[in-house]
Design a binder for these strands. Sequence first.
DNA 1: GGCTAAATTTACGACCGTCGCAAGTTTGCG
DNA 2: CGCAAACTTGCGACGGTCGTAAATTTAGCC
Lengths: 215, 215
Amino acid sequence: MALQTPAATTGLRETKKQETRQLISDHATRLFIAQGFEQTTIAEIAAAARVAKKTVTNYFPRKEDLALDHQEQFAASLAVAVSARRPGESALAALRRAFADAVAAQDPVAGFSGRQFARMIADSPTLNVCLRGLHDQRENHLARALAEATGAQPDDITVQTAAGLLSAVHRVLFQRIQTLTLAGHPNDQIAHAIAADATQAFDLLEPALSGYATA
Amino acid sequence: MALQTPAATTGLRETKKQETRQLISDHATRLFIAQGFEQTTIAEIAAAARVAKKTVTNYFPRKEDLALDHQEQFAASLAVAVSARRPGESALAALRRAFADAVAAQDPVAGFSGRQFARMIADSPTLNVCLRGLHDQRENHLARALAEATGAQPDDITVQTAAGLLSAVHRVLFQRIQTLTLAGHPNDQIAHAIAADATQAFDLLEPALSGYATA
DNA sequence: GGCTAAATTTACGACCGTCGCAAGTTTGCG
DNA sequence: CGCAAACTTGCGACGGTCGTAAATTTAGCC
């Protein structure tokens, strides 16, 4: 029913793949929320979705992939913000603006999520490790974007330091959103508080990077 | 032979424990260097040291503990540098000085190590994850020290941001030392190059934190 | 010097995540 | 209709981690 898109490339096979993938993902998130990430085994998820264990790991090579979505989007977010900065705008200004927009939209990529989801992450060492890795990837992508923006080498000390500083501010703000979510604050209230925090944090960095990588 | 220290508390049992621990650690590092971290199993280490697998995991709960030493010292390094800052010295100045000293001494805690050791770490995803976690712990300890130094709450946005920025610079410099070591440069040459990099990196942060947490 | 109680080492087993492989099934296309 | 490609499946294996009970060693004390 409702085979609206015969899939650009082939057709039936693709749609069934998407359905299977979604089926697995849905059962996984449901079980993760209900009983925790570490407490849920891949075998359980496979049984709930009525597929083989191997099918689960085919779609999601790592167990973390079942819980964390939009990974590459997250890793690229800062780099694209810099690459898309306006004429005359510095990298810092562009990242400030991008963060403000994300907060206003309560974007999950900025750290906004339901309370149960935040608890699942906080309770799982595995997911925390994964999250740290994503912050790292994001910083590396940002460093490459800054190198391209300034014409410097990607391993230039100024480029890497600037990327580290900017990434650190975003990471601190991300964790702050997580903490507030975990404490049970509603997203609207969090967005309001984080906007003020972001002003303080970015202002601290302003004298160091005010004119860096201005388009 | 040579039972110089009957051990402060009890005696023979403690010394044998230390011997067993050292025996396991020696065989582990030897095997890690020879054939890589991931390629070496705990069973292999136990066989080489002629003890049971469980004995290895009793002394070293995590496999990473067999490869990375001085973990708590590393995690505390930035915090103690701030806590021990001189009168009139800012946190940034104290950390600059501590890093310069560590580089001059080619301190392993700053990232100096043999080439084989650096390769072992670089080739192991597990150890990279562990290292990231240590950088994180170090930042958290620094945040607590900064909170105490300024009288602010540990979850204050300025405290967390300052800790994040200072930690980011140290992390970038640490990784740079690792990279140069991996490229085969001798430690003396690395120390010279890193000193210049540190000047640039810390100078970038100077206008943002010049007077922060001055004793 | 020997005995008893405590601690450490040991052996065995289990579970889970990850990976490889061969066979069976379904799909797309000629 | 049949063939080739893909996806799914079940099986097995390995390694890290964690219990638990037995065996050995040690310390303290009579």
